[in-house]
Design a protein around this nucleic acid. Structure first.
Lengths: 231, 231
DNA sequence: GCGAATTTTTACGACATTTTTACGCGGCTG
DNA sequence: CAGCCGCGTAAAAATGTCGTAAAAATTCGC
């Protein structure tokens, strides 16, 4: 009878606001984790797979819009923006990058909490039909962040999970190495293809029947990788 | 082949704002229906089952919050509130009644459109078929970087694929050797026509019914090569 | 601070692709 | 008709890329 408390990730550099937001979210009955920057936030999001991300746009180590884009490459969780910028163009950019709501500072606790409730409610509404995805003898349940193979739970590390989510989000498509590296490790890692070799290897090891003869995680030499759903 | 245009319902008593919103939504490619009051709006919503409702809170014949509650009794479609009231309590009430977003007047067209896009984004997930190109019994799907022949996947190496893409981009035209070489191998290889002989051979081997009698990848002796779409 | 889990780095054999080389064919020309 | 030239094919050589295992460094939870 686990109470299934939704996890929320707050990405915000100012400690004071972060604390303020944490209190508001905890009052909503959420479990809160925090990150102070873009890189930190993406790593944490990959580890926690939060039900909601509350994101400040004015981060020290990068643009919040970049966070949204990277995050959207492998996750569809709602994102609520907090920002001091009231210009319409900023709102449009953030919403089109994949954000779900945009709240300008200063804002009241009550409105923040109400908007959080609205975003989480929608998740419940459509999360009812647990959208799993199957290939081979593997089932991936994104809502629960759970991967099973022949019914047995398979443990994936944060990076493995993000890579898997990204590949599965584009079935049949070739994802270039540069794109995968940029979305998962960051723009400055686009040349470090050895990371991919290692982690694709992990996925095959854990999810393919015969890791030496992969049927789902295919290599396109010199280009990237392709996820092949069931034949 | 109807394009499946999403229907949006605008519930707003002031004709001027209604028109303004209609224009914004139509610019998003939506089919718009209008209602001027709560009763009218609910009736219209029941008839149309719109993909989104844009709702003004200041209606003459009842409270907008009542509209939301009634609507939510039978529909889970997203609701976007427009309101002149900026008090936090109003926002909280509307969001908790079941609204998904709350926009205070005055607002910009751009922000309205962006928020509409954000609300509608989720429901349209799988666009499915990507544009492809066919000749003979071969199909080329550039979005997925996939080539099939009689339904069977054909593997192409990076150079083979680039050459194919280039030829297919200019159907019926003769592409000179120098141009192909410059584009694929670089400006300093424009004389090395033997590369082309090898790789055009590969394409014919993999894609032509009878590689010795090519029907699509034709040689223009002394000039270059020409891609011939279906006869 | 300590142990466990995870990420990063490194090295090397296996494999895929590209490049190079060689040769046969056929048309054209002198 | 002989020789030259451009083309097509095949296969060897060279290069580059990939997969794997394991060690080193880092992070995380307690």
């Amino acid at each position: 009878m686990s109470e299934q408390v939704p996890r929320v990730l707050v990405v915000e550099d100012e400690a004071q606001i972060r604390h303020f937001v944490r209190l508001a979210l905890e009052a909503e009955g959420c479990a809160v984790s925090e990150a102070a920057g873009v890189a930190d936030g993406l790593a944490r999001a990959g580890a926690d797979d939060p039900a909601l991300v509350v994101l400040d746009l004015g981060l020290p180590d990068g643009d919040g819009v970049d966070f949204i884009r990277s995050f959207r490459a492998w996750s569809e969780r709602p994102v609520l923006i907090l920002s001091a910028r009231t210009e319409e163009s900023h709102k449009i950019d953030a919403l089109d990058a994949g954000a779900d709501d945009y709240l300008t500072k200063p804002f009241g606790v009550g409105e923040l909490r109400a908007r959080v409730r609205a975003l989480m409610r929608r998740r419940q509404r459509q999360g009812g039909a647990s959208p799993w995805l199957e290939f081979g003898n593997v089932r991936v349940d994104f809502a629960r962040r759970q991967v099973t193979r022949d019914g047995e739970a398979i443990h994936l590390t944060p990076i493995e999970y993000r890579l898997l989510a990204m590949l599965l989000a584009h079935p049949g498509q070739v994802l270039t190495q540069r794109k995968l590296l940029a979305e998962i490790w960051g723009a400055s890692y686009v040349e470090s293809s050895h990371y991919l070799r290692v982690y694709v290897g992990h996925l095959r090891q854990k999810l393919e029947d015969d890791p030496t003869q992969p049927r789902h995680f295919l290599t396109e030499t010199g280009v990237g990788y392709r996820f092949q759903p069931d034949a």
